[in-house]
Structures are given as structure tokens and as C-alpha cells.
């Protein structure tokens, strides 16, 4: 049972990450290779505030999200200056810089040794430290974010974000600032990824730089690509496939050591097939370019 709940928590974290990446990639058309940066910022700020300053999760959470917003502003400044492939290359650079900083700034992040002993959140004296309580807690976050998108996708602002994705020169010609819509989109994406980071840090109780690498950013992007960008169902189904695939392999009585590698092989193969035969992804509304 605990194992099932553990899988549920992982699924919730990846659903949040996929939805956050979808905001940038699917709704704004900003092909980012640095989604793990915001995930990492959320996780590290939470971990530092809890372990080094001794504050609770509920204080760490707003500070972490505010830090994500500040990082998003830097990101959106870049998005306002460079476009398309150059934007992706700039995000690649940010991802590499972020990893180098958390890996080498030992006095703050403990570098490669990571930060251990991150305490769990508490609600009204009830400690969220079991897989069951965490699955519930993560589930509440997922429901909040999904409900947000059910509302947000129908708003005029989201329409303008998508219009900017389709043709930012046309938006400019109409007397509207495309950079504003990019900025809002990047901030929303950063906040959701930040929430996933705070969840991960408090659930795992230990974080190190290896969870926030370029590989992780590419993986998050692949989840959106497979599930499909532009809506809600696509990113969620992408996360479901990624998390549940190894479980399916276990049913085939594959040993764990083989299943882990098989997962990546099957996931890679799926990615190639999707790109070839269903470029919008399984439930995609927008073709990532």
C-alpha cells in the first residue's frame, strides 16, 4: 500500500511539473530547457529555510515561490530579448549555471552532499510525513492547479498568451505588449514548478543537485511532448505514462535493475514514435516547434 502511495506522490509531483512546463511550452510557445531550475529553486529555498533557519514549511513555501517569481522575471527578461532557438539556448545556459551554482556553493547548498533532514509540513498539529498523508497533500495541490487551469484556459489573458505564442508581431501591431504576456506565463509556470519543488524537498527530506539537472529538464519537456501540449489532459497523461510505465514492466516480472533501464528505452522509443506519427502528442492541442 505504501508503495502505491509513494508512486502517487511521485505522480503528483510530475503532474505539477508537466503542467508548469506546459504553461511555458504549450501555451506560450517558449521551448525551455530549464524547467528543472524552478523545480530546484523551490526545493532548495524550502530546504535551506527549514534546515538552516529553522522555519516551518508554511513560511518556506511563500519565500520559495517568491524566489521562483524573481527567477521568472530574469527568465522573462531573456524571453523578451531572444526568440525561438536562441531562447532555448539561453535557457540551456541558465540550466547549466543553476546546476553549477547549487553544486559548488557548498556553504549554502552543501554542494554535492545535498541537504538532509528537511522536516515535513504540519497542518493544525498533524504532521504530513507518511506516504498516505503526502499523497493527500500533493493531491490537494494537483487539484488546486488543475482547477486553476480549468478557469485560466478560458480567460482573455490566457487567450492573449496563446495569441503571443502564435504571432507576437501581430500582437505588437495590435498595440499590445507581447513581453507582458510572456512574463505572466513564465511567472505562472515558475510558481507551479516551485510548488512541485517544495513538495519534493519535504517528501524526500533530502535533496542534492542531481535531481535538478539538464536531464530532468529534458525529461519534463518529453513528458509534455508525449502527453501533448496546450491543454490539461496532455501533460497529466504524459506524467501518468512516465510514472506508471515501470510499474507495468514490473507486472511483466522484470527485475528492478532492468526495469529502470527499460523504462528509459521505452520512453525514448515512445518519444520517437510520437514525434513521427503524432507530433502534437497524445492529447495535444498545439504543435511544439
Amino acid at each position: 500500500m505504501n508503495y502505491f502511495l509513494h508512486i502517487s506522490v511521485l505522480l503528483e509531483i510530475y503532474i505539477l511539473l508537466a503542467l508548469s512546463a506546459n504553461q511555458k511550452v504549450g501555451l506560450s510557445g517558449l521551448l525551455t530547457l530549464a524547467q528543472a531550475v524552478f523545480y530546484g529553486v523551490g526545493a532548495y529555498v524550502t530546504a535551506i529555510i527549514i534546515t538552516k533557519l529553522g522555519f516551518s514549511y508554511w513560511l518556506a513555501l511563500p519565500v520559495a515561490l517568491l524566489t521562483c517569481v524573481l527567477a521568472a522575471l530574469v527568465f522573462s527578461f531573456i524571453a523578451g530579448k531572444v526568440r525561438d532557438l536562441y531562447f532555448s539556448l539561453a535557457t540551456l545556459a541558465i540550466q547549466i549555471i543553476f546546476f553549477s551554482v547549487v553544486y559548488n556553493w557548498v556553504s549554502i547548498t552543501n554542494g554535492p552532499y545535498g541537504i538532509a533532514g528537511i522536516s515535513s509540513p504540519e497542518i493544525l498539529g498533524f504532521k504530513i510525513n507518511t506516504p498516505g498523508s503526502f499523497a493527500l497533500f500533493g493531491g490537494v495541490w494537483v487539484i488546486c492547479v488543475v482547477l486553476f487551469y480549468v478557469w485560466f484556459l478560458k480567460t482573455p489573458l490566457c487567450r492573449m498568451i496563446q495569441a503571443t505564442r502564435d504571432d507576437q508581431i501581430a500582437v505588437l501591431s495590435l498595440g499590445k505588449d507581447p513581453n507582458y504576456y510572456k512574463r505572466v506565463s513564465i511567472i505562472i509556470s515558475a510558481v507551479i514548478a516551485g510548488v512541485a519543488g517544495t513538495l519534493y524537498a519535504t517528501y524526500a527530506t533530502y535533496i542534492d543537485p542531481s535531481s535538478f539537472t539538464l536531464d530532468e529538464s529534458i525529461l519534463i519537456l518529453s513528458i509534455v511532448l508525449i502527453g501533448g501540449a496546450g491543454g490539461i489532459i496532455g501533460p497529466i497523461s504524459g506524467a501518468l505514462i512516465y510514472i506508471l510505465l515501470p510499474e507495468a514492466l514490473k507486472f511483466m516480472q522484470m527485475p528492478d535493475s532492468v526495469a529502470a533501464n527499460m523504462r528509459m528505452i521505452i520512453f525514448g522509443l515512445l518519444l520517437v514514435l510520437i514525434v513521427r506519427f503524432k507530433p502534437k502528442g497524445i492529447f495535444g492541442k498545439y504543435l511544439i516547434q
Partner: peptide
């Protein structure tokens, strides 16, 4: 013509409106 190709026609027109309070977060 520079339309917002993934939006519907009416959404294109509404997006073109000079003033729409809903464009602000």
C-alpha cells in the same frame, strides 16, 4: 495575413480588441 492560427476566428477578433480588462492578471 497575420492571424493567431491556433485560435478560433472569434477568439482572433476578441484578441484584437484594443481594450479588454481581462488581458491583465
Amino acid at each position: 495575413p497575420r492571424l493567431f492560427k491556433n485560435l478560433s476566428v472569434w477568439e482572433n477578433l476578441v484578441s484584437a480588441a484594443h481594450e479588454n480588462a481581462g488581458n491583465s492578471f
